[in-house]
Amino acid sequence: MVDITTTYAGLKLKNPIIAASSGLTATLEKVQKLVDNGVGAIVLKSLFEEQIEMQGASMMETSDYPEAADYIAEYVKSEEIAKYLELIKNIKSACDVPVIASINCFRADAWTDFAKNIESAGADAIELNVMRLETDLFAASDNFESQYIDIVKGIASQVKIPVTVKLSSHISNIPALIDKLRAAGAKGVVLFNRSYRTDVNIENECLTSGKIFTTEADLHDSLRYIGLTSAVVKKISYCASTGVHSAEAAIKAILVGADAVQMCSAIYKEGPEVIGKVLKGIEEWMQRKGYQTVEEFRGRLNASDIKSATMFERMQFMKYFSKSK
């Protein structure tokens, strides 16, 4: 019998599969189905700072009392936060897996008090989802990274539970930022967030949304950067996200240094039952390979030796195509 337990950001998980933040983790009923199918932890559906502000602005547009703007904005925020805290309490009382709260934020000072409430409600960790595309021509190149660090510092200093960060792949030097986040108090990073996909409808000549769900082909960036960074930035946990659809994908991520993986699209497509299939596949592979624990093979293929580092750092196709003529 193999042992598939793991540790992510200081949390003990019965297996490496984490349900990613999405509509799948928005209610107790949905979370219970994931737990019943064996998930190791869940990340609650994100509370969006921008969405709360938009709701407040919408209410102010219909108000005859503009001077009540601050009150309305605070009321909306308080109501949304109260619902979120109640969800945490309900899930913690009904489920026996770690519950990670998720905040989608873009300012350093907006959520520090809320983080304390999250901790008091019983959440086991907080995942910060700081996703923003910088388009200001005059913005300093390091402003965006400083924003990440300031948010982590502000929230990590207020709570005792682990703080993790879900990163975008659109960052210039990911290993350097992860090292700074570690120094700022982050206990784990998730690579990577899936951004909104922009597409074009050529018949209607308008912008539209691209494909929402991932495929297993989307895993490659996560493998590259976890493999590179886990070899040089220690004392922080790594979680692979975007493209984890099978046991094979989860095993790949762990081999390059991931402590856990997040699943979302595969669960939407195949239902919560896919979690059990993935877990069974991991166990069968471990038995075939003679591994007794996840720790025995975690990071075996990361960039800690020159040969592996060269493979992870390769960006050009020249060598591949020169052999494929």
Score class of each variant (00 low, 15 high):
Asp3Ser: 10
Ile4Tyr: 06
Thr5Asn: 11
Tyr8Gly: 09
Lys12Ile: 14
Ser22Lys: 09
Gly23Pro: 00
Gly23Gln: 02
Leu24Pro: 01
Ala26Pro: 08
Thr27Phe: 11
Leu28Val: 04
Val31Thr: 05
Val31Tyr: 00
Lys33Arg: 13
Leu34Ser: 02
Val39Pro: 05
Gly40Asn: 09
Gly40Thr: 10
Ile42Asp: 01
Ser46Ala: 13
Ile52Asp: 11
Met59Asn: 10
Met59Pro: 07
Thr62Gly: 06
Thr62Gln: 12
Tyr65Phe: 15
Pro66Gln: 07
Glu79Pro: 08
Leu85Lys: 01
Leu87Gly: 12
Lys89Gln: 14
Lys89Asn: 07
Asn90Tyr: 01
Lys92Glu: 08
Ala94Phe: 03
Asp96Ile: 07
Asp96Phe: 07
Pro98Val: 13
Ser102Val: 06
Ile103Ser: 06
Phe106Met: 13
Asp113Ala: 02
Asp113Asn: 03
Asp113His: 00
Ala115Cys: 04
Ile118Asn: 00
Glu119Gln: 09
Ser120Trp: 00
Leu128Ser: 04
Leu128Tyr: 02
Leu128Gln: 06
Glu134Asp: 14
Ala139Ile: 11
Asn143Lys: 15
Glu145Asp: 13
Glu145Thr: 14
Tyr148His: 09
Ile151Asp: 10
Ser157Ala: 09
Ser157Val: 05
Gln158Phe: 04
Gln158Lys: 12
Ile178Val: 13
Leu181Phe: 01
Ala184Asn: 02
Tyr196Lys: 09
Asp199Trp: 03
Val200Ser: 02
Val200Met: 11
Ile202Glu: 08
Asn204Arg: 07
Cys206Ile: 11
Glu216Gly: 15
Ala217Asn: 10
Asp218Cys: 10
Asp218Ile: 11
Leu219Ser: 08
Leu219Lys: 10
His220Asp: 09
His220Tyr: 11
Asp221Ser: 07
Tyr225Asn: 13
Leu228Ser: 10
Lys235Asp: 15
Ser237Thr: 05
Cys239Val: 11
Cys239Arg: 07
Ala240Gln: 10
Thr242Ser: 13
Thr242Phe: 08
Thr242Gln: 09
Val244Trp: 05
Ser246Gly: 08
Ala247Glu: 03
Ala250Ile: 07
Ala250Lys: 10
Lys252Ile: 03
Ala258Arg: 11
Val261Asp: 01
Val261Glu: 06
Gln262Pro: 00
Ala266Arg: 06
Lys269Ala: 13
Gly271Leu: 05
Val274Ile: 15
Gly276Pro: 03
Gly276Phe: 08
Val278Ser: 00
Val278Trp: 00
Ile282Pro: 04
Ile282Val: 12
Trp285Met: 15
Trp285Lys: 15
Gln287Ala: 14
Arg288Gln: 12
Arg288Phe: 12
Glu296Leu: 15
Phe297Gly: 03
Arg300Leu: 15
Leu301Gly: 12
Ala303Asn: 12
Ala303Gly: 15
Ala309Thr: 04
Met311Cys: 11
Gln316Arg: 13
Met318Thr: 15
Met318Phe: 13
Tyr320Ile: 15
Phe321Gly: 00
Ser324Trp: 07
Ser324Cys: 06
